[in-house]
């Protein structure tokens, strides 16, 4: 079992990548992906995080785009540079565009439920091997009606992901080391939101498997350069 978490480090968050790595290792993660938004500036002292032993620290990117063209440009420019590329599903248009782009690794569900993940998006995601990322931070932050509304959207998206067998990923999108949650706690939270335990485990392991695949050289779909 190798669990990975996708974090936002300084300057976007309030903890450095090395602090995130230290805490994540203590909690039982095998690796973290520092996926700051592409336009938030350089990650503060990323090389320092690599000095933390027994945990893999990988640089990723989280794309926040307003329109289809902007998304395509950013994804194309970042794809060769980072082994993990996530897109925030902020609107229906971005969701569709991300699902139709094979360069995108993960489409992350918007915490406020914006960006409808419909059947067409699910079909495209399956075809282009775009995983769906479920952000569990609203489960931690919200209370009452807002959380129940978020949970109903989560369940609806989960049904679609199961139906189309789309790979899933769960994250708490931590902005600080205090936002990090241990893998067992993430599994417990995902379980409350409707995921089965095996699904939640696979979702935590998914980024690790994805990194392994993206590090290999693929000439065309299914053909690897050895």
């Amino acid at each position: 079992m190798s669990y990975y978490e996708c974090v936002h480090a300084l300057p976007e968050g309030s903890s450095s990548a090395s602090r995130m790595a230290l805490v994540a290792r203590r909690l039982g993660y095998q690796g973290i992906i520092v996926a700051n938004c592409s336009d938030s500036g350089n990650i503060f002292n990323f090389e320092a995080a690599r000095k933390v032993r027994d945990i893999e620290v990988v640089r990723g990117a989280d794309v926040l785009a307003r329109d289809r063209k902007g998304l395509h440009n950013r994804v194309t420019s970042l794809r060769r540079r980072v082994p993990f590329l996530a897109v925030q599903g902020v609107s229906d248009m971005i969701v569709r565009a991300a699902c139709e782009d094979p360069n995108v690794d993960v489409l992350i569900q918007h915490p406020e439920g914006r960006g409808n993940l419909g059947i067409a998006a699910a079909r495209s995601a399956k075809q282009n091997q775009v995983a769906w990322g479920f952000d569990l931070s609203p489960m931690i932050r919200l209370r009452g009606g807002q959380r129940s509304r978020w949970m109903s959207i989560f369940r609806r998206n989960l049904v679609l992901a199961r139906k189309f067998r789309i790979p899933m990923m769960i994250t708490a999108r931590p902005m600080s080391h205090l936002d990090l949650r241990a893998p067992r706690e993430m599994i417990a939270l995902a379980g409350l939101a409707g995921m089965e335990m095996a699904e939640a485990r696979a979702a935590l392991e998914y980024p690790g498997r994805l990194l392994e695949l993206n590090r290999r050289t693929w000439v065309s779909p299914g053909v690897e350069l050895i």
Binding site: S14, S16, S18, R19, M20, N45, A49, S176, L178
Partner: peptide, 10 residues
């Protein structure tokens, strides 16, 4: 958060 979380490595 009130504090920035850093390490000696930083």
């Amino acid at each position: 958060t009130r504090y920035l979380g850093l390490t000696c490595f930083d």
